[in-house]
Design a protein around this nucleic acid. Structure first.
Lengths: 257, 257
DNA sequence: CGCGCGAACATGTACCAACAAGTTGAGCGA
DNA sequence: TCGCTCAACTTGTTGGTACATGTTCGCGCG
């Protein structure tokens, strides 16, 4: 006999069947009523079990349609290559990467002047609440929300590169624009973490329950001081970040085949 | 009037109060019964709202005790420094990092020979199902579960470095042991992603609902081919990964203060 | 004084009922 | 044939009840 609660047994059984391939990604699960009769449980109990799987990101549910096994389609981001001036680019790094993968990039854009939040101020080594320029991107791939990106530029940098504070895109990419104004970023400090999305993030990225976000903070440095800080939130189910360290000739020659 | 469901209103109101600081990390929320009377809702409805916050990782619940606002304590991992032979180390990189942070490391250990799983085989460029050595770590910091780490070594490497297949620790660290046998890793390919934990992972890491895991896959290369592949799962609420790229003199001189 | 038991209160599990709301497809009418 | 309506089926929301189980603390007994 099992001492586990019944809703757990339901969740475990369904997870096992999904792992076994009895239900493939995209398949619909039996309806709550069918499962209730199969497990000899009430509809509420079955719902508890299913909601476990939903909050674990294994299945999704939609009213009127039923429960579906989630599909995972991963987009790779090569973080060590990003903002490398020697790499051939057409516009910004994001558009380049997405286009090269044969998908369609789309982004909306916002520029504003704000007091620097604490998290950013620490990294830019400026005072909390001092003014900084925020450039905010909402990015899509094939019209599916993919990430949001908020880049803060400190006050002193705006003197050197005034176009950053103006609305509208910078066609050649901000990294190149800055380099052209004599601001060369020579190093980056990246921080990566994860958590469940805030309601605001869930809305912007259109992620349902059970999908975490991947948080990427990149602080760019000149030889003297930090010049900008970018916080990107990715849909955790659709993105993977890659870093290459050292000599990867052995890897790359095989990838070229 | 609001058209939002009542349980959403409960969740939103509580989230707002937590964000405002009305309830600080570690504080207990009012009981379900109190909230039900405050929001003029049934206990079931309040539970729905609370379970949203739990699955978002904002609060935890425990039977008999109530709901508590989750505390977040982050441990930093410097991934670009890991396994760098020039960095002074005392045993393996994990113990060194944890000790330097003034905390107490502890790990359990397992070595076995297994058929190579597909995910690993792709990265090691060996056949799926071919034999490989798996060294598995379960790591704690101050007796709190922190991460699990599974490193696979391909068959050919065992010929060169037989101690890998033997149970028991390798005191100087596997990277140094390999280097001593003429196997020098000159590059790493890192992949980072996130998802909700499997039940097995939730058990090993003792994470409740609403906490994602951070997945780190590192493939180490010699000049000729991949030599090992490590998959690490971290508790997402307790870990952050750092990468340093390029010249960070401007950062490090200030950190030294 | 100290130990243990139990009351009071917390959440967890399980069930029932009713109605709301989204989706689909059969079938009927123009 | 085309298009509309509606029945049937799906999940979503909200209420109720009962009992199980974990936690705390004070009271009373030894």
């Amino acid at each position: 006999m099992s001492k586990q609660p019944k809703y757990q047994q339901v969740a475990d059984a369904l997870r096992r069947e999904i792992d076994n391939g009895m239900y493939a990604p995209g398949d619909r699960l039996p309806s709550e009523a069918e499962l209730a009769s199969r497990f000899d449980a009430s509809r509420n109990t079955v719902r508890s079990g299913l909601s476990l799987l939903v909050s674990q990101g294994l299945v999704t549910s939609s009213q009127g349609l039923g429960y579906e096994v989630r599909k995972h389609e991963v987009f790779e981001l090569n973080a060590s290559r990003f903002e490398n001036l020697t790499f051939p680019q057409n516009g910004d790094a994001y558009s380049t990467d997405v286009t090269n993968a044969g998908r369609r990039p789309h982004q909306t854009f916002r520029v504003e002047m704000t007091p620097t939040p604490e998290y950013i101020a620490e990294r830019l080594k400026v005072e909390v609440g001092s003014r900084s320029v925020l450039r905010f991107c909402h990015r899509f791939v094939d019209d599916v929300p993919w990430s949001t990106q908020a880049t803060h530029y400190p006050d002193w940098l705006i003197q050197e590169a005034p176009r950053l504070a103006e609305p509208g895109d910078i066609d050649e990419g901000t990294t190149r624009y800055l380099a052209g104004r004599g601001i060369e970023q020579v190093g980056y400090a990246d921080e990566i973490s994860t958590r469940m999305p805030t309601p605001e993030e869930a809305r912007l990225l259109e992620i349902g329950p059970g999908v975490p976000v991947l948080l990427w903070t990149r602080t760019g440095y000149t030889t003297e001081r930090p010049a900008r800080c970018t916080v990107t939130t990715f849909r955790g189910d659709l993105n993977r970040m890659n870093y290459e360290i050292g000599d990867l000739a052995a890897r790359n020659e095989n990838d070229a085949k």
